[in-house]
Design a protein around this nucleic acid. Structure first.
Length: 167
DNA sequence: AAGCGGTGCAACCGCTTCTAT
DNA sequence: CATAGAAGCGGTTGCACCGCT
């Protein structure tokens, strides 16, 4: 039995963030399992990867989701299901974890509430709602989203320093 | 001011998929 | 083709924070 070295868990400190950023800037991403050792971090590769992908990576937008983003998430969740990474691929600068959290904590509740309301609503209200979100509209929306060109590093020249090791 | 409950988010866990040999 | 290791993914949990009483 090989004793596992002590691996820290829980919230990342500023110092750990800096170490990971500095290491990736210098050497890029080559092997998540080996990297933490060399970066001087007592973290699992998984933990480093998650931290980088969801928080430290450049081009990440955090906080308030716009109305458009909300609608996009709702539409895509409807058509793709809980495939958060696929949904995230259509929402530039948002991470799958962020989208998942946003869905679970806010949108799901809202959708549930709307469903309850619509099931008790008059048929008139229902039909007007259906006009607004017909299947045709939904599939058109999805087509548009699927055609969306995900920005590349070329779109962010000021971040060229990261270009050698993105994704 | 203190206690409490609800909320949101960061991070972990376990499983699946991908890739290299 | 089989296998092992790495990477990716989605569900879930734990905790910090905030507002209310």
């Amino acid at each position: 039995m090989v004793r596992q070295p002590y691996l820290k868990k829980g919230t990342w400190s500023h110092d750990e963030d800096q170490k990971l950023i500095a290491y990736i800037r210098k050497y890029g991403i080559w092997n998540w399992n080996e990297m933490p050792k060399f970066a001087g971090l007592q973290r699992s590769g998984k933990s480093c990867r998650l931290r980088w992908m969801n928080y430290l990576r450049p081009n990440i937008r955090r906080g308030n989701f716009s109305r458009e983003e909300e609608e996009t998430i709702i539409h895509l969740q409807k058509t793709l299901g809980n495939r958060w990474s696929a949904i995230a691929a259509r929402l530039p600068q948002r991470t799958d974890n962020d989208i998942k959290n946003y869905w679970n904590t806010r949108l799901k509740k809202r959708i549930m509430g709307e469903k309850k309301n619509s099931s008790s609503a008059t048929t008139e209200t229902k039909s007007s709602m259906e006009e607004n979100s017909s299947d045709a509209d939904s599939s058109m929306m999805v087509d548009i989203l699927l055609d969306y060109q995900i920005p590349t590093m070329d779109d962010f020249p000021e971040l060229a320093v990261y270009a050698t090791f993105s994704t």
